[in-house]
Computed example of a mutant assay.
Amino acid sequence: MDTRNSSDSIGYYTPDRSAEVVNARMGKAINPRLALLMASLVGHLHGFAREVGLTQDEWDVAIEFLTEVGQMSSPQRQEFILLSDTLGLSMLVDAINNHRPAGATETTVFGPFHIECAPVLEMGSNICLDGKGDPCLFEGHVLSIDGSPIADAHIDVWSDNADGYYDVQQPGIQPKWNNRGVFVTGPDGKYSFKGIRPVPYPVPEDGPVGRMLAAIGRDPYRPAHMHFMIRASGFQKLITHTFFSGDPYLKSDTVFGVKKSLVATLEPAGRRGEWRSAFDFILAPIV
């Protein structure tokens, strides 16, 4: 239903009818979905301001905060994604838009540190280029819901290094593409690559989002995880992580990304200091 009315019939702006007056000034010939989104946004923002009795000083701080979030954002670091993640909004949008059939691997947040065009590597390659950390073998299969292997699935993986930083956070310190790579499955759907046992890390605390978390007494840490983005013809794209049992931050992930089904095994393997994590990914078909 179109909630907009003629500006003339609504009258002048008054605090008690502010959202109604603002929304009445939208044009009639605009995209209906845009009209719905903007009308709801304006209504909730104005309702929030009235509910809390927002002061001018508080609104000035909010404007300054959002300005800093934008200024901090770049192709290498997306502070707005970090803000969305830490407010739990990214996970809510993900849940609304990624209903999966029973048995399919669940999704989770994308995160701000993915980089397009990571190198395609031979199966079994080592993505750790800085030589730090405990070696870990990641392996498993990419399967359909009926258990059939999926060939030609592109598995884009990325993680932090042993110091808890992604390569894009430390240009000139970490090698480019450190702990990143793309692998393509064969007819058996199997994948394997070597990396490191990921470590927990705090989200960036040197910007406005980090200061916000500190101000409200929030733990900035994420549990250790490996990122996966899997694409295969005929199947829905899967963006997810694997986490590891026993991690102290599983129940306090600052971006709310942990799901029980994504907690993978992590066990000692081979020589001392080496690890192995096995996880099968089940893709949902495009319907």
Rank of each mutant, 00 (worst) to 15 (best):
Asp85Glu: 03
Phe113Tyr: 12
Met91Asp: 04
Glu58Arg: 08
Met91Phe: 03
Gly111Thr: 00
Val61Asn: 11
Gly47Leu: 01
Gln56Cys: 08
Leu36Trp: 07
Glu68Val: 10
His114Leu: 08
Ile81Ala: 02
Leu45Ala: 12
Val93Met: 13
Ile96Arg: 05
His44Ser: 12
Met38Asp: 05
Leu36Asn: 10
Arg33Tyr: 13
Asp60Glu: 14
Ile115Met: 12
Asp85Leu: 00
Gln71Arg: 14
Val93Cys: 08
Gly53Glu: 06
Gly111Leu: 01
Trp59Ile: 07
Gln76Val: 06
Phe110Ser: 09
Gly47Gln: 04
Met91Arg: 11
Gln76Met: 10
Gly103His: 03
Asp94Ala: 08
Phe110Ile: 08
Leu92His: 13
Arg50Pro: 07
Gly111His: 04
Thr108Asp: 06
His99Asn: 12
Asp57Leu: 12
Val42Asp: 11
Ile81Pro: 00
Glu68Lys: 14
Leu87Asp: 02
His44Tyr: 11
Cys117Phe: 15
Gly53Cys: 09
Ala104Gln: 06
Val120Pro: 02
Thr105Val: 01
Phe80Tyr: 11
Ala49Pro: 01
Leu83Val: 03
Gly47Glu: 03
Leu45Ser: 08
Gly47Ala: 02
Leu54Gly: 01
Glu79Trp: 04
Gln76Ala: 13
Leu92Ile: 12
Gly103Glu: 05
Asn97Trp: 00
Asn31His: 14
Pro101Cys: 05
Val42Ala: 12
Asp60Ser: 14
Ile81His: 02
Glu64Arg: 06
Leu36Phe: 08
Arg33Glu: 14
Arg50Glu: 15
Ile96Tyr: 15
Pro119Lys: 11
Pro32Asp: 09
Thr86Arg: 02
Met72Tyr: 11
Pro119His: 06
Met38Ala: 07
Leu37Phe: 01
Phe110Gln: 10
Leu89Phe: 13
Thr67Trp: 00
Gly47Asp: 01
Arg50Asn: 14
Glu68Ser: 14
Val69Tyr: 05
Ser40Met: 10
Val61Pro: 00
Val61Leu: 12
Arg50Ala: 15
Ile115His: 10
Thr105His: 05
Glu79His: 03
Gly88Gln: 05
Arg50Tyr: 10
